[in-house]
């Protein structure tokens, strides 16, 4: 049982963040609770984007949304402009989500309609978004809504309100994946697209919904970030690498079919704390990125190595099992053409 718990993939993100947190404590005079509280107010944005990215990656090999960064930046401007024009925060946030949906719709059209590989399709959609961002940013004067900013900074008992809200969102995604037909269909498509097709799952619809969800979540993150910080053309830049990294480190299978939403929290906290630690030590941004890239590779290496040893929870596609070998051989024998 202990081994089984240790094999749970989402634990490692939390373990790693605890280690980094302890290191920060040892190195600085800052209070431990304050560090956690700060991390909890920064992590939710990354978790929102990561949840969307996780759904996309779960859809199987080749699926990735590289448009999240430009979507965040564009949605930031759109949300602030919409709030300024109407005076309503809700309209602004909805406008941000709508922006994400619109950009994702372009990706979906390209992926499903034109059969363009997702990485190219989302890259193209992202380029469209970033050119829109640049034209919007030129002479942009509106300022983020003060009320929303205060809400995002609200930390009763050191726990940010946003963190609670995003924790609820995470729980909803967990329920979505295990309790709805959409979630189960997505997991099936991610394991084997031909098998899912033959099992009667509407693969195209599932994929479309997944990319739209990722776009909407990135849009939401952009709208909130713009209020929290300020709209800028490179608001989302760091979220591309980070969103993929937190998904992978969180235990979601990069080859699809298994999603671990809770793991995103652990790895997002880890990343935020790691940023803090690296700043504390005085490393440059370049060194930070090097460290993160290395971590992702290391986790993927561990994931691959772990499955080879572990028989039951592994990814069986890679392993030639006796059953498969026997059937393959028999099929060859029977399959001779007349």
């Amino acid at each position: 049982m202990t081994l089984r718990t240790l094999a749970r993939p989402w634990i490692w993100g939390f373990v790693a963040s605890a280690l980094v947190w302890a290191t920060i404590l040892a190195l600085s005079s800052q209070g431990g609770g304050q560090t956690v509280s700060l991390a909890l107010s920064l992590a939710p944005y990354l978790v929102i984007v990561g949840l969307g990215q996780m759904l996309v990656i779960t859809a199987g090999p080749g699926n990735i949304d590289v448009s999240v960064a430009p979507v965040i930046s564009l949605a930031g401007f759109v949300a602030v402009a919409a709030t300024a024009a109407t005076g309503s925060v809700a309209v602004g946030v909805l406008a941000g989500i709508g922006t994400g949906l619109a950009v994702a719709a372009i990706s979906v059209l390209a992926i499903l309609g034109l059969s363009i590989p997702p990485i190219i399709a989302t890259l193209a959609a992202g380029l469209i978004a970033s050119s829109l961002t640049l034209s919007l940013a030129d002479g942009f004067t509106a300022v983020p809504d003060e009320g929303l900013r205060q809400l995002l900074n609200l930390r009763p008992a050191g726990v940010p309100v946003l963190a609670v809200a995003v924790a609820v969102l995470t729980a909803l995604v967990v329920a979505l994946l295990s309790r709805t037909t959409y979630g189960r269909s997505l997991l099936a498509v991610g394991q084997s697209r031909p098998a899912a097709e033959r099992a009667g799952i509407p693969v195209a619809r599932v994929l479309a919904a997944t990319y739209l969800a990722s776009g909407a979540l990135a849009g939401l993150a952009g709208a909130l970030l713009a209020a929290y910080i300020a709209p800028s053309p490179d608001l989302g830049t760091r979220y591309l690498l980070d969103s993929v990294a937190v998904v992978v480190i969180g235990g979601t299978l990069i080859s699809g079919g298994r999603a671990v939403p809770v793991g995103i929290w652990g790895s997002a906290l880890f990343f935020i704390l790691l940023d803090g630690l690296v700043n504390l030590v005085g490393w440059s941004t370049a060194a930070q990125n090097l460290l993160k890239g290395g971590l992702v590779l290391f986790v993927l290496f561990l994931a691959g190595g772990g499955t080879r040893r572990d028989a039951t929870t592994s990814r069986p596609r890679r392993r030639p099992r006796p059953a498969t070998a026997a059937t393959a051989a028999t099929t060859t024998g029977d399959n001779t053409h007349g």
Binding site: P194, R198, A328
Partner: peptide, 15 residues
């Protein structure tokens, strides 16, 4: 539909 090629288009291996 019941596919003949169960390894490729039948089995969902993680489940």
């Amino acid at each position: 539909y019941v596919p003949g090629d169960r390894q490729r288009s039948g089995v969902l291996p993680l489940w």
